[in-house]
Amino acid sequence: MKAAKIVFGLLAVTFLMAPLVTILPLAFTSSDLLSYPIRSFSLRWFEELMISDAWRMSIVNSLVIGAGATLLATVLGTLVSLGLRRSFAFSGILKSALLLPMVVPAVILGVGMQITFIQLGLVNTHVGVIIAHTVVALPFVIVSVSGSLAGIDMRVERAAMSLGANPLRVFGHVTLPLMLPGVLSGAVLAFATSLDEVVLTLFVAGPNQRTLARQMFSSIRENISPAIAAAAFVIIVGTVVVAGLVLLFRAAAQRQKPSTVTV
């Protein structure tokens, strides 16, 4: 029985990891073709990412748009979570509506956004792409922040009030520090969402807003160069780092170690 579990587990992991294991080594090939076998290793395709205008611009775009969407989604998502903390009339419906971008097909969102953005003159602008990414990143922030808020005992905030803290200071000294791990992991998830978002970007971005994910998507059709594998390597390493940060924040929320703070 135990052996069966281990075998099944290994198979599942293999299935999930196989595509990555296939593509990643090709980032280090010296050949012009995205294919095996690898005859000799080199970093020329990483160099290509840095030198080529199209790749370099897409990396910069991804960072700029990712940062903007992360900031916007985190601030809005945190405010939404605080507002939805106490239930009121239709608060359940409101929350479901805000989480909708998670389940609505991206194509539909994309078409809708394109039509709206044309009206507003936001098509082919960085602001437009940031807004589009914010919409899909927002639910992740809300889920994460709401989760950490649910873990805060309201009586702790009441205690702070009775000890002389006005509402602003209750927030600053008690609520915010306690919800911070949730906010940070929400921000990280928002950034990851923006980083690999392709569909909405196809609809609302112009050539100047090409993100890394979008650039990979199109270069696959144009020429299958190992630069894609190198770009994939960059994104995956970035994602793993980001996922590591999430785990770190969650662990920080759990851990209660002796403090060095003294009065």
């Binding site: 702790v156 009441r158 000890l163 509402p167 306690l178 002796p258 403090s259 703070v261 003294t262």
Partner: peptide, 22 residues
């Protein structure tokens, strides 16, 4: 008056200490 202006010390059943402070 709001709680923070009442000058009363409250002790709760579950103590309600601030978990993030020493």
């Amino acid at each position: 008056l709001p709680p923070h202006r009442r000058d009363m010390g409250v002790v709760f059943q579950n103590y309600a200490l601030f978990p993030h402070m020493s």
